[in-house]
Lab assay of single mutants.
Amino acid sequence: MAAGGDHGSPDSYRSPLASRYASPEMCFVFSDRYKFRTWRQLWLWLAEAEQTLGLPITDEQIQEMKSNLENIDFKMAAEEEKRLRHDVMAHVHTFGHCCPKAAGIIHLGATSCYVGDNTDLIILRNALDLLLPKLARVISRLADFAKERASLPTLGFTHFQPAQLTTVGKRCCLWIQDLCMDLQNLKRVRDDLRFRGVKGTTGTQASFLQLFEGDDHKVEQLDKMVTEKAGFKRAFIITGQTYTRKVDIEVLSVLASLGASVHKICTDIRLLANLKEMEEPFEKQQIGSSAMPYKRNPMRSERCCSLARHLMTLVMDPLQTASVQWFERTLDDSANRRICLAEAFLTADTILNTLQNISEGLVVYPKVIERRIRQELPFMATENIIMAMVKAGGSRQDCHEKIRVLSQQAASVVKQEGGDNDLIERIQVDAYFSPIHSQLDHLLDPSSFTGRASQQVQRFLEEEVYPLLKPYESVMKVKAELCL
């Protein structure tokens, strides 16, 4: 049975990233139509530049190519590739079939990587351009969430054990800070992308030097003109047959890092959902379990974690691919890159769409948070109580021993009897502590235990987050809708 299948058929496997999760716009960027249309555009740009620099290419040939950029006979191309065992030459023939007058000058002087690699770089750039505003929107939604809850005390956790208090907004800023680093890295790697350009079979530009009869300047002009037509500021000066596969490492490393950030955020949300302090959106008709109707599973956060793990592992592909590119190139890269580049971007696209949807509907339960604080705060307040007693004339050592005994009794009630923490009640009825009984409410005010959390939130948002989001103001209103 021949390899390949009808990918629109229910009898043929289709990647869930495309069929179930990723956005239509990201799927289109990695589609065959987008790819092969870009090949034709690159052939047109090459012909236009070659004509401008004096090669015998007519206006009629150029116009014929322009008129057929979208006229792609995919069936013919597939048949040609089956016959020739070469995808680029299959599309040269297919393009030439609908451009008979231009057929002889299509791909003039070029090698397969002229269309293959340059198209990949265009796709990487455009895919990054799709991700950047999506990530900015996630940051914006979380920034709104953090600002609104900047002063809401909550129990902090280290080692997932109760620690000092923080605020809900401050905790959210930990998430935002990681995503801001990801946004900066995505922008950097996007701006650092260079075009492969017009380089020939081993990167020496020998074929173009021959076409222009040894004119170095025209060869350099050709490279520059096509690079500018493709919208790049610069091209690699040095290439082998391909652009260095280190570029793929750079791009997928940034995406993998984004995956790590999203995994951490969504894990926190899942843990908070278990504590009943916070939940992701839950639709009115949504079913959490087929057997347990009360369940409210954090399905979206779980999906993000599941896909983020996949995204983090994909960076190993370009690392290994770059390491086995012998001399000017081997074909070890080809099949692998067809999979890992598309999957990385479709996965990143999915987790950003999902995280935006989550961040637009996060639900906080202040009463649950308050109750958990009441359970733990008495123990945390013991040092403040000791200091207040010393100020009232008591002995630190005597007070410490009193607190120690009462704390152990209260802990026994919590752990052995399943009761509430009654340390404060014990202190309130103990005559030894009568000098500070009137101060206990103040000493137990949760806001006095959150330090500068709310001020940190305000400063972080104003100095770091809002300036970073400013270039994306025009796209901030787009909502994230999930079908599944």
Rank of each mutant, 00 (worst) to 15 (best):
R125S: 08
L211G: 03
Y294M: 02
P435I: 10
N118W: 07
V262L: 11
S261P: 02
V262E: 07
K391D: 05
I339T: 07
K134F: 04
Y294D: 06
Q375N: 09
K170N: 04
A2N: 10
A235L: 12
R137Q: 15
S140F: 12
V364D: 14
M387Y: 12
V88K: 05
R149H: 08
V219P: 02
V198M: 15
D182V: 02
L193N: 13
C304F: 02
R196S: 12
Q164Y: 04
L319K: 00
Y294S: 01
I358T: 13
L275W: 12
F36E: 15
T166Q: 00
M312I: 12
I287K: 01
F36W: 11
N71W: 12
H437N: 09
D216N: 12
L135N: 13
A163D: 02
M225W: 06
Q439R: 09
N274D: 15
Y432H: 14
R188S: 12
W43I: 05
I269S: 00
L186N: 11
E220V: 09
K66H: 12
P281I: 06
W175S: 11
R338Y: 02
A388T: 08
I249F: 02
Q63W: 06
C304M: 07
R404S: 09
K402Q: 13
Q375C: 09
G361F: 05
L271V: 06
A308K: 01
I427L: 15
H442C: 05
G214N: 10
I339Y: 14
L211P: 15
G231E: 12
Q286H: 02
K295R: 00
A18N: 08
T119G: 06
G231A: 07
D182S: 06
I373G: 03
G214V: 07
F236K: 05
A235W: 13
K295N: 05
V429M: 13
R303D: 02
K367H: 10
S67N: 12
R396W: 02
T166G: 08
I62F: 06
E462W: 15
P471M: 14
N68C: 10
V368F: 07
A335R: 01
D32P: 05
D248V: 03
L406F: 14
P293V: 02
L271D: 02
T202S: 14
C399D: 10
A381S: 05
A136K: 08
R196H: 15
W175T: 05
E81K: 01
A348Y: 00
W45H: 14
C304N: 14
E383C: 06
K170R: 13
L362H: 07
V251R: 08
Q428W: 13
R141K: 14
C98V: 08
T158V: 01
L44D: 02
Q286C: 02
H97A: 08
F433R: 03
H86S: 00
T111C: 00
V429H: 08
H400C: 05
V413M: 14
T321K: 01
Q409V: 10
R404W: 08
A273D: 05
R234Y: 06
V189F: 10
I373S: 04
T244L: 06
D349L: 04
K477H: 15
M292S: 03
G259S: 09
A103H: 06
R309S: 09
F236Y: 10
T347M: 03
P293M: 01
K187N: 08
V92W: 00
V219N: 10
V324P: 02
C27S: 03
E279A: 08
P281Q: 10
D32A: 11
K233T: 04
R149D: 05
Q375R: 05
K233R: 07
K402T: 01
C172T: 09
K134E: 11
F449G: 04
K264D: 04
E462C: 14
H217C: 08
D441Q: 14
I139G: 04
K229D: 07
I373T: 08
K415C: 11
R171W: 05
Q408K: 11
S323F: 00
S306L: 01
L307Q: 14
D117R: 00
P162V: 11
K224M: 08
T111H: 00
I339S: 10
E481W: 12
A2F: 14
D332R: 01
V138E: 15
Y21G: 10
P435Q: 12
A102I: 04
C27A: 13
R309M: 05
P318E: 05
E250V: 08
N421T: 06
R374T: 08
Q164S: 09
W45F: 09
M387T: 11
L142Q: 01
P16I: 12
L346G: 07
L179W: 05
R396Q: 00
R300E: 05
T330Y: 02
P318F: 07
M181S: 13
S407E: 00
H442K: 04
T321D: 02
K367W: 04
R245L: 01
